[in-house]
Amino acid sequence: MAEKTATQRIDFNELKSGGFIKQNQKDLFTVRLKVPGGRITPDKMMKIAEVAKKYSRMGYCHLSFRQSVEIIGVHIDDFDTVVKELAAVGQKIASCGPRVRVPTACGGCEYNPNGIMDTQSKALEVDEKFFGIPCPHKFKMGFSGCPIDCTRTREMDLGFQGVVYPVWGKDLCNGCTLCAKACQEGAIVPDKEGRPIFDESKCVYCGDCIRACPTDAWKDKKKGWLVRTGGKHGRHPREANEVLNFLPDNKVDDFVAATVKWYKENGKPKERIGSCIDRVGLEKFKKEVVGAFLKA
């Protein structure tokens, strides 16, 4: 009996959705592992290392651009064992193809002094609810905790970036002008007494003034997410459109659900949401998705 070929044994499209990506080498695949937000425990890292050492026939891993760990050169016959061994520490396989991907996130507000919003817990939450949902094309999300935007939400199909709205109270101000020094946008200029004149049109809502103020005269009035849609990289990069500012933290899931629903209804096969927006118009997206969140 002739040996079955890999194509007969396995449905490649099915494999692709499961995060097994065909390689140049016959019967070898890249196994893409799910690392939402790029945060991973040492236990998982050790298990991945152990599995990779045993089953990578090429002897290495690759850190993907979207924070996944990929085991390179896994033989098709080892799939089941690899999945089972990784599951022992709760390590899951990621996805590829036309569906909602694993969200990326910056390091996190627990230890980064610039952090405004909790990107790590939000990335986990969104991954839990939306991972793998089939779409017209790939759908990538990312979370940045502050306007430095390490996660590059401008390149995401749907990106969320932390923002904080500063308010100043004259009673606590001692006119030290440190806020004006701290502001990198020129949005704060001191008057003759050293008191700040705030130009909101220049403000990026980073909160540097609040952190710099020694007397707590600057406070945060509210925090939330700046939402960007329609970004992508690849052959034809497109910068995302800013569609909403100060989305409350507890509305993120609803916004993702509404956007994915709209994309599935409006997107053509193989069309990213950004191209779809270019075709049907940003106003349509704003009216049908963003509108419901404006009064939030």
Binding site: P113, L178, A212, C213, P214
Partner: peptide, 11 residues
């Protein structure tokens, strides 16, 4: 220095 140090002192 004036942007960073006072902020860290406050933290």
């Amino acid at each position: 220095p004036l942007r960073s140090v006072p902020r860290s002192i406050k933290e």
